[in-house]
């Protein structure tokens, strides 16, 4: 169904310039679309940045947005990520207070989802998890139950399976 509103992902290769993100964000906001998640970083070529954006929209809308994006001078390529064929990951860092009696539960969670304790401080710890959206949601539910104090979450990154 093309008129179904669902999460859709776009991969954008751009010139690494100060205003390019504003232009891309403007392309969404000018049409009243929300960016659900965004992930951007320079590539191995320092003048080129790769951006991955997810948004809730219909097929038709996403096609229009992609045309608009490709019209921007600093966009070298914008295209849809076909969702059935991809690996997708998000990452979170979460701070938990760590009283003695919670240690075991935390260890168990870290073990079950290949998490990592990236920093231990007196009475608290910072944990790292990566996974697809569902996994991350599940981990977050558990972390909340364990008394999560702070959270940062990246945008989604994707890679299509098979050679491009």
């Amino acid at each position: 169904m093309t008129d179904l509103i669902k999460e859709r992902a776009i991969s954008i290769i751009v010139n690494n310039k100060p205003d390019v993100l504003a232009r891309i964000a403007g392309t969404f906001s000018a049409r009243g679309f929300n960016i659900e998640s965004i992930s951007a970083n320079v590539t191995r070529n320092p003048v080129i940045t790769k951006i991955i954006i997810t948004t809730l929209s219909t097929q038709e809308t996403i096609d229009k947005i992609i045309k608009q994006l490709n019209r921007l001078v600093d966009v070298l390529d914008a295209r849809k990520i076909s969702r059935s064929q991809v690996c997708r990951r998000e990452m979170i860092l979460a701070r938990l207070s760590m009283p003695e009696d919670r240690q075991a539960a935390v260890e168990e969670l870290v073990g079950a989802h290949s998490g990592k304790v990236v920093s231990r401080e007196s009475g608290s710890a910072i944990l790292e998890f990566t996974g697809d959206k569902d996994t991350i949601e599940e981990v977050l539910n558990r972390l909340e139950a364990l008394g999560m104090e702070d959270l940062t979450r990246t945008g989604t990154v994707f890679m299509e399976r098979g050679k491009p």
């Binding site: 205003d19 000018a30 001078v73």
Partner: peptide, 14 residues
């Protein structure tokens, strides 16, 4: 002015 005209120019430069 590049911010102001971002959405009404084909492109702009500072």
């Amino acid at each position: 002015i590049t911010g102001i005209t971002r959405t009404c120019t084909k492109h702009n430069f500072l």
